[in-house]
């Protein structure tokens, strides 16, 4: 029997500092042993651990199509994330995963997809976006709305520049308040979502801070998106990641095994989900 509590080792291959205030860093990890390599789909997460310091769950930011690496973007906020930020290239870390469910990419096939993200929660959305771009012919129109408090707080800035150049992708970038030199959209994500004329027959994936999700989902309903075609990813404090330790439940659903991806239809049935 597999012991899911035991992490396997990965090596820090590359570190990117995402924001000038250095609170956001991205880590590319490479497998030390080939047999540890696992299959996953966009939306799943891993428990990232530093032995002696603890472990925390993070969404996988790389796409399954990017072979040989796993990417995680970490906001420095607590004791484990603090230790993660101290990592240097070639350091060894522990990984458990893949855990949880995924965005229903099979259902998206041949259909238009809208991705709505906020701040550093764009991680699993990056996984989804890269996955769809790498299998571009399988999907219809792809639209992305991505908001951050200010231009510094977008993650994957180099890649955003590449995405802007593509003609098979519509990208709307927005910041909360006007900043000198910013020539793109200004306004909160829910407002922008209302304004950019989305096609409500598309599938929609929303991920961001709780407050953003809370106010964006009703806007999508207003625009005519059916609940069962809207998906979001929820976050709760977690330990085991396999439905035992009991802290990530929302009603009878456990975010670690029944989620983290839920449809708006499911969310409406669980009190306190948002």
């Amino acid at each position: 029997m597999k012991n899911t509590y035991i992490p396997f080792q990965m090596k820090v291959k590359k570190i990117y500092t995402e924001s000038p205030d250095r609170t956001l860093k991205t880590f590319d990890l490479s497998y030390l042993n080939k047999e540890d390599k696992f299959d996953f789909l966009p939306g799943q997460f891993c428990e990232f651990s530093i032995l002696g310091k603890g472990e925390s769950p993070f969404g996988i930011a790389s796409s399954p199509t990017e072979e040989d690496i796993l990417k995680f973007t970490v906001n420095r906020t607590g004791s484990v994330t603090n230790e993660i930020h101290y990592l240097q290239e070639d350091d060894i870390v522990g990984i458990r995963g893949p855990l949880g469910n995924w965005y229903p990419v099979e259902k998206f096939k041949g259909q238009d997809v809208v991705i709505i993200g906020g701040g550093f929660a764009f991680t699993t959305l990056r996984s989804l976006l890269i996955y769809m771009l790498d299998n571009r012919d399988d999907y219809g129109k792809i639209t992305v709305i991505y908001g951050a408090r200010n231009p510094d707080l977008f993650i994957y800035k180099d890649e955003i520049k590449e995405w802007e150049k593509r003609d098979d992708l519509t990208l709307h970038l927005t910041i909360d308040n006007p900043v000198k030199g910013w020539d793109k959209l200004t306004g909160f994500v829910p407002t922008v979502t209302k304004e950019v004329s989305l096609d409500p027959t598309s599938w929609c994936v929303v991920c961001g801070p709780p407050i953003m999700i809370k106010y964006t989902l009703p806007v999508l309903t207003e625009l005519g998106f059916p609940d069962e075609k809207i998906y979001t990813s929820l976050e709760r404090r977690m330990k085991c990641g396999i439905g035992k330790c009991g802290r990530c439940n929302i009603g009878s659903k456990y975010v670690c095994i029944d989620g983290p991806v839920f449809s708006y239809e499911e969310i409406k049935k669980i009190p306190e989900a948002l």
Partner: peptide, 28 residues
């Protein structure tokens, strides 16, 4: 319900799980 915690010094230590309770404010 349980908590998972690391105890160690330097490169040696252990990961343990301990009973926890949904009654505690820091649980979630």
């Amino acid at each position: 319900c349980f908590d998972v915690s690391d105890e160690g010094k330097g490169k040696k230590g252990k990961r343990i799980r301990l009973w926890d309770s949904c009654m505690f404010a820091i649980f979630t």
